[in-house]
């Protein structure tokens, strides 16, 4: 099934020419720091990821294709009960693959995720007049739904015949996650871990199970109703290899570790923020896929 493609001008003469390694599944789930954890919010987030794909280790001087995954997420957080948090994210995906002069685009609703977290620890106390210590631990889970389209044709050359390139995975996944936040005065830290136990889609394709996590430190500077929160930290993700009809696909899965930088600004009930992930170590799809820096911008309204 693996196909080699770099003479894009000749594409039209190639039947059923596909590529198995392009990029990662676009449905990566990452929250970042979400402080003000008592409040409901509704917001939009724009995020972008770019990858270079090499069809062979001997092509490392020139990428055979470049993929760009952009998404606009509608995300909502609310507390139906004091200790129960519901998080929902619905992405709209914009995917693009460039191979020589040929550009293929795909857009559509992605896979929505719904999580229900329970606040196991939720304490804030004033130790003395000088120190404010707050910490919270949320654990929970939910599902990544198959709301995104997952169809492609191996023979239609305007399609990117790759399961990774589709807006959705076509399968429902179980999601488990935990978030711990500690804040001492103006300083804080956030640890989160997220695991996805993946399902198999109708085409017999099974994306590998995956985990990601981050450790982020932040600082809050406040002036009346306005506050800014710079943050810095580490992010890592790891994915098992995919299978199709039980057959392992070697050039899938992998890991990425990144440094993260973020800046959030609060004014009244509004939050605007930017977050970047700068890869420091990676091996994606057996080293055939190279991830570039990722960027996310969000605007949210709290209630």
């Amino acid at each position: 099934m693996k196909r080699l493609l770099f003479f894009a001008l000749l594409l039209l003469s190639i039947p059923g020419w596909a590529c198995d390694v392009c990029g990662c599944s676009g449905t990566n789930f990452y929250l970042g720091v979400l402080p003000q954890f008592q409040k409901h919010f509704v917001g939009f987030r724009y995020r972008t990821q770019r990858y270079d794909t090499f069809m062979s280790r001997h092509h490392i001087d020139q990428a055979d294709s470049r993929e760009s995954f952009q998404a606009i997420d509608l995300w909502v957080r609310f507390y139906p009960l004091r200790r129960v948090q519901v998080l929902a994210i619905a992405p709209y995906q914009f995917h693009q693959q460039t191979q020589g002069n040929v550009v293929r685009r795909l857009q559509g609703l992605g896979d929505a995720t719904v999580l229900v977290n329970y606040k196991l620890i939720d304490r804030s106390r004033i130790r003395d007049s000088a120190h404010v210590v707050k910490h919270a631990l949320l654990v929970g889970g939910g599902a990544k739904l198959a709301t995104g389209a997952h169809r492609y044709s191996e023979t239609d050359l305007s399609d990117v015949a790759n399961p990774n390139f589709q807006p959705g995975t076509g399968a429902t996944d179980l999601v488990l996650n935990g978030i711990y936040t500690l804040r001492v005065n103006r300083w804080g830290m956030n640890v989160d871990a997220n695991a996805r136990i993946t399902g198999t889609n109708a085409e017999g394709y099974h994306f590998g199970n995956r985990v990601n996590g981050s450790l982020i430190g932040f600082y809050v500077k406040q002036w009346g109703a306005t506050a800014v929160m710079p943050s810095v930290g580490l992010y890592a993700e790891y994915a098992r290899k995919d299978h199709k009809y039980g057959v392992l696909i070697q050039e899938t899965g992998g890991y990425l570790a990144a440094a993260t930088l973020g800046l959030d600004a609060y004014r009244g009930n509004w939050v605007v923020g930017v977050n970047a992930q700068l890869p420091v170590q990676q091996r994606i799809s057996d080293g055939l896929v190279q991830a570039h820096s990722r960027l996310a911008i969000h605007l949210s309204r709290m209630f």
Partner: peptide, 17 residues
């Protein structure tokens, strides 16, 4: 077992395949 199923051991095809 969850951790093991996620990260451990070599990855291979199902014997049936």
């Amino acid at each position: 077992s969850l951790v093991v199923s996620l990260v451990a051991c070599t990855e291979q095809s199902d014997p049936g395949a």
